[in-house]
Amino acid sequence: MRVLFDGYWWMNGPPSGHMVLREVVGAWRQFFPADELHLVVPAVDLSHARAESPDLVFTGTSLRFHPLINSVALRHTDRRLGPFDATLAQNFAAGTRNSGVFVHDVLFQSNPEWFTRTERIYLSLIPRFARRADIVFTSSRTEVERIKAWNPELQRVESTGLGVPTAITREHASTEADPELHPGRFLLTVGRLNVRKNVGTVIDAVVRSGRVSSDFPLVVVGSPDGRTETLSAAARTAVTDGSVRFTGAVDDARLAWLYRQCRMMLFMSLDEGYGLPPIEALASGAPVIASDRPVLHEVLGDAVTYADPRDTVAIADAVAAELDHPWRRESSQAPGNRPWADVVAAIRAGYQRENARR
Rank of each mutant, 00 (worst) to 15 (best):
V244A: 11
H182K: 14
H172I: 00
E176M: 06
T240N: 10
H172N: 02
L187P: 12
V212D: 11
V202P: 01
R192W: 01
A238I: 09
I203A: 04
D215W: 00
S232G: 09
A233N: 03
I203E: 09
T237A: 14
T247L: 15
R192A: 15
S214F: 00
S232L: 08
L231Y: 15
L181V: 04
A234W: 05
A238V: 11
A177L: 14
D252H: 13
E176C: 10
V202A: 15
V221W: 05
V220D: 05
S232E: 03
R196T: 07
A235D: 11
V202H: 00
S174F: 03
R245C: 06
G210P: 06
F216D: 06
A238E: 11
K197V: 07
T230G: 11
V212P: 09
S243Y: 04
E229I: 08
T230C: 02
S174T: 11
G184P: 00
A177H: 10
S214G: 15
V250E: 06
G248D: 12
L218G: 13
S232M: 04
R245F: 08
R196A: 06
R227G: 00
A249K: 13
E229F: 13
G226W: 08
D251F: 09
T175K: 11
T201K: 14
E176P: 03
D225E: 15
F216G: 09
G210Y: 06
R208A: 15
L193I: 14
D225H: 14
T237Y: 03
G200T: 09
D252R: 05
L181H: 02
R192D: 12
T201P: 00
K197A: 05
H182T: 05
G200E: 13
S243H: 03
F186C: 08
V244C: 09
P224V: 05
V221I: 12
F216Q: 12
V190W: 04
V190G: 13
D225L: 12
S209E: 11
R211N: 06
V202L: 10
G248R: 04
L231W: 14
N198W: 02
A177P: 14
P183T: 01
G200C: 05
V220P: 01
T247C: 07
G248V: 07
V239E: 13
T175I: 00
V206P: 05
P183S: 03
V220C: 05
V202W: 01
S209K: 09
T189P: 09
V219M: 08
L187M: 15
S214W: 00
V207G: 03
R211P: 02
L188D: 05
V239C: 12
E176H: 13
G210A: 04
V207D: 08
A205R: 04
D204E: 14
A173R: 13
S232W: 04
E180K: 12
S223C: 01
F216V: 06
V219P: 08
V207K: 07
S214E: 14
D215F: 02
V250N: 06
T230N: 13
V195Y: 09
F246Y: 15
G210L: 07
H182M: 01
N194S: 13
L188V: 02
D215L: 09
F246W: 04
S223F: 02
L218T: 10
E229R: 12
S232T: 15
N198E: 11
F246N: 01
G200W: 07
R185S: 08
